[in-house]
Write a protein that binds this DNA or RNA. Structure first.
Lengths: 216, 216
DNA sequence: TAGATTGTTAATCGATTAACAATC
DNA sequence: TAGATTGTTAATCGATTAACAATC
């Protein structure tokens, strides 16, 4: 059974990578794997993988390794991929559309139940599979459907005004693609996806040939 | 003068955030700031900020603090934002378009010089400001224009086949939006932007109300 | 001069790696 | 039984925080 609470965020961030890796193995019919081989193939160390997994339970078997399917299921359960969180998306530009398409194609445990835009009538939504609401309908929609996550694909000045309001409307997680640096708190969990920051970091690495691993 | 080399990637990743923060101060006419106030406003500690900056030089003044404009310029120079790296983008779907638009609007030290798609004739490129080439033209284009960074907005199976080839064509940095987990090396710097991983991490946090800071 | 705040060293904390007994 | 590989404890490494002398 999955034990969590006060597992470090560093470990949590590796779980989706393990999950992806194991899914690929499963797809290729691989049934068992050792921490050593996971390490080799993912560019980590065997120790680290065993430490990570043992934060949640002893999923392996001495002398054998890990059963791919069982471990994959355990991680899915730790990440709550089988449960569902409802999400709304604000700002249906190219990026918003890309994310909406991505989310309908992938199982990440989060599903989109509403898309909003300042000018819904200007959005070309053919093939998107959603109809788009105006931001004026946001309050009413949230009160009725109680989404938990908001995906921000709006400019940072708009985002600044929106965050506090979303909190009041019951949003407890923000996937933030605006350049606003949103601070995480107990009440509001945040993943800041600052594209520009990542690109500048890449630029630095390319210029300096600096070493060091990266993730997300 | 900026001293770098073997500065940890953890520190480097904070530089773009500092830069953004200082740019905003500058926009608001703020001329000086202390590490303590930066810390308060960014959710870090004053110690950490002083440690970070002193990896590159002593930019402050005792009893006074930091001059906003000077510090901002120093960080821009450390990040090489004034120099330019040429980049190409592969896969002009919604995401590719979003990134192309973003990059023409922002100064990140990286500029797009070519967009490629498997089916360039199917891409609606009105208003994009680029004309889109077929992937068959990639070799020729790279040999002529020698871009250094490739932005991958193609499916992961396509990405898998493409990475080694890009390396041979002189690409030394990859901004990877495919779900393929690309390993970084001395020859090839990588920023993996795994959207799904980030969303799953957010889901975990929302479910578990787990604490811990995040960035990108 | 007195007050403020840096640069920098030392202490602490957390994450990774190594080692090995347990056991399949 | 012998070999392999886990789970787990201990050692190391790196990053953050605290403290304080230097100095503007």
């Amino acid at each position: 059974m999955a034990e969590n609470k006060d597992v470090s965020i560093t470990v949590v961030r590796r779980l989706p990578r393990y999950y992806k890796f194991l899914s690929n193995l499963k797809k290729n019919g691989v049934q068992k794997i050792s921490s050593k081989e996971i390490a080799n193939r993912m560019g980590l160390t065997a120790s680290q993988i065993r430490q990570d997994l043992n934060c949640f339970g002893g999923f392996g078997q001495q002398g054998y390794g890990y059963n791919v399917e069982a471990l994959s299921n355990e991680i899915a359960s730790i990440l709550h991929l089988n449960q569902n969180i409802d999400a709304i998306l604000l700002g249906v530009g190219n990026l918003g559309k890309a994310l909406a398409n991505y989310m309908s194609a992938q199982s990440t445990g989060v599903s989109l139940i509403g898309l909003f835009d300042k000018n819904p009538e200007l959005v070309e939504s053919k093939g998107l599979g959603y109809n788009i609401m105006g931001l004026t309908e946001l309050d009413e929609f949230c009160k009725r459907h109680k989404p938990k996550i908001a995906i921000l694909c709006i400019p940072s000045d708009a985002a600044e005004k929106t965050v506090a309001k979303l909190s009041l409307l019951g949003i407890t997680g923000i996937w933030n693609f605006s350049s606003l640096d949103i601070q995480e708190s107990d009440e509001l969990k945040v993943e800041n996806m600052h594209l520009g920051n990542s690109l500048m970091t890449l630029g630095f690495k390319v210029h300096n040939n600096c070493s060091g691993s990266e993730e997300d």
